[in-house]
Nucleic acid binder design. Structure first.
Lengths: 187, 187
DNA sequence: GTCTATAGAACGATAGAC
DNA sequence: GTCTATCGTTCTATAGAC
């Protein structure tokens, strides 16, 4: 079954990375032969594409429009909390990021798009808040957005090493500090 | 020459990761045969060990003792600035982190030790500053230390994707915010 | 210290039967 | 949709000559 093969691939790539995972391993974990796997995914690259599509579908950080100040930032805290119950998804994300920084990696384009999307969402939120007067005019939009993404990414690494780390709490602390520093009294 | 082989290995692992790099590739890049390489590094694992040792030697974030408030944090900003001229070192670090989150990875123990060292240094600094009265007693030491490490790591990913990102400036901005939020007037 | 030669296994991918 | 069979390649590692 295609579904079982996809799940097996996600599990293995999350644990070992894409380069270290072989088609034979995926096939064995799915309970079929390598050729049976090849029927659904004619190449290793095609399998990776399906894995990334599945990941994006499960990742809820979509561009959402809200008029609440800092709502995109609060939403990331919420995502962090939910991720603390989804180790497989977090591990898959981090192994992909680590491999796909290389420009030649088959997932590099996916990674570039992912960062562009998240950064754009945060930048848009900050600029909209500035126009509404809930974020100070002199707030460094670019630095704040990039810091938020860095915190999100870095905390996932530390949480994978030690699940007692409360990603959401640490992130919420930083978001609160951002609000204190760059928010206006209008909030 | 052992030196040339080590340099080739660092270059290739930085670009492709450990799993995707073969001994034959390293040997070719070093201008020797795979067997010539095997003389210096009898196994791929031994080569990885040498690469990690070399990385640690080049990484200057040693436990340093200073009585300046926040000096460990200011030092990380300095390291970030210096890293902006060392793409190979940054790329090697990120690919290793991505792979070594897996507990079975040969570099996992190295990664665990690395994070323990950096986090301990930052925690010690914050606690010492609290005792000296330059950091507020109610400052969340653990969250601040983990946030700092996350910022450092995450910014390196973003910088690898787009070298126009000023890691040091973004990090300095966050450190300044931390000082405003948790520092006392004694600073 | 570097080489040739080679072992033995795993790799991705394809062809064709059922 | 899954299989057997197999191609050609690449992999890590070892043995032994120079």
């Amino acid at each position: 079954m295609r579904e079982a093969a996809l799940r097996a691939a996600i599990e293995l790539i999350a644990q070992q990375g894409y380069a270290a995972t072989s088609m034979a391993q995926v096939a064995a974990a799915a309970g079929i032969s390598p050729s049976g796997l090849a029927h659904h995914f004619p190449s290793k690259n095609a399998l990776l594409g399906a894995v990334l599509d599945h990941r994006d579908a499960e990742d809820t950080f979509v561009r959402e429009r809200s008029h609440e100040p800092w709502s995109a930032f609060d939403h990331m805290v919420h995502v962090a909390r939910r991720n603390m119950g989804r180790r497989r998804l977090v591990a898959l994300y981090m192994t992909m990021i680590g491999e796909a920084v290389a420009p030649e990696h088959p997932a590099h384009a996916w990674m570039v798009r992912h960062y562009a999307d998240v950064l754009d969402t945060l930048r848009d939120q900050l600029r909209a808040d500035q126009q509404r007067g809930t974020v100070r005019e002199d707030a460094p939009v670019e630095a704040i957005a990039r810091s938020m993404v860095s915190l999100m990414d870095g905390l996932q690494v530390q949480w994978l090493l030690d699940e007692s780390v409360d990603m959401a709490a640490v992130l919420a602390e930083s978001v609160a500090a951002m609000k204190r520093t760059w928010g206006t009294e209008l909030v």
